[in-house]
Design a protein around this nucleic acid. Structure first.
Lengths: 116, 116
DNA sequence: CAGTATCCTAAACGATACTG
DNA sequence: CAGTATCGTTTAGGATACTG
């Protein structure tokens, strides 16, 4: 398997280049779907892949997979796979991921306030 | 002049499409440079274009201009132009922009904590 | 069910030159 | 000084088919 990080070349570069800590933070949660995915896992611990997909309208299969893998590599979520047939996979936030709770909540409130 | 929003086609689509308020919020501050620019203006009110450019390493001329224009259209910053020669332009956060203070500060702290 | 692999588009980003 | 305009590159994102 290719290294997942090769799928996000700029994201990696950005993490190295940014002296600014805000810039760094945005490389982690600032993708189109990143924050939304984290939010859903935060609100529904042990959520399964399929439910996650259903709860996020319009996200594509590929992007959800890639982002989940990236978020796992970034240490924000953990993936629990049960070796059953058919497979069952759950996602949870790690400590590092949960530390974004406040920020995500405020982002949500801010968005709700100013969304047209 | 072209409509500035044509330069950010997806950004606009995203604002309309997203039911999710976090998704909406990210379209506003989730670009590569958006949050950083807001942060610098927040920390240095009345900052001039040139100083802003100098204080953000690696940002290109074009992107800084475009983002400033977009942020102005989004109602987050205000632009004050003095009709002198040579011209002098200052940027400030609006009320709406300042309402992001907490989020930006927390993003900064989070990034500093977890940046390698 | 929970993914990969492949192919593709569009959008963000950037270097550089020019302007009032 | 503070921008535009024009060009080009890179990258994120997506449709679809296939797999253990």
């Amino acid at each position: 398997m290719d290294d997942i990080m090769e799928k996000f070349p700029n994201q990696r570069k950005r993490q190295k280049d940014f002296k600014c800590s805000i810039g760094f933070a945005m490389t982690v949660i600032g993708s189109k779907w990143g924050a939304i995915i984290l939010w859903h896992i935060l609100k529904s611990p042990h959520i399964r892949y399929g439910e996650l997909k259903k709860s996020i309208p319009n996200i594509s299969h590929k992007i959800l997979s890639l982002e989940l893998k990236r978020l796992e590599m970034d240490g924000l979520i953990e993936r629990i796979a049960y070796p059953t047939i058919p497979p069952k996979v759950e996602y949870n936030l790690t400590e590092k991921g949960r530390s974004l709770d406040n920020i995500l909540t405020e982002l949500c409130l801010w968005g709700r306030k100013y969304m047209v």
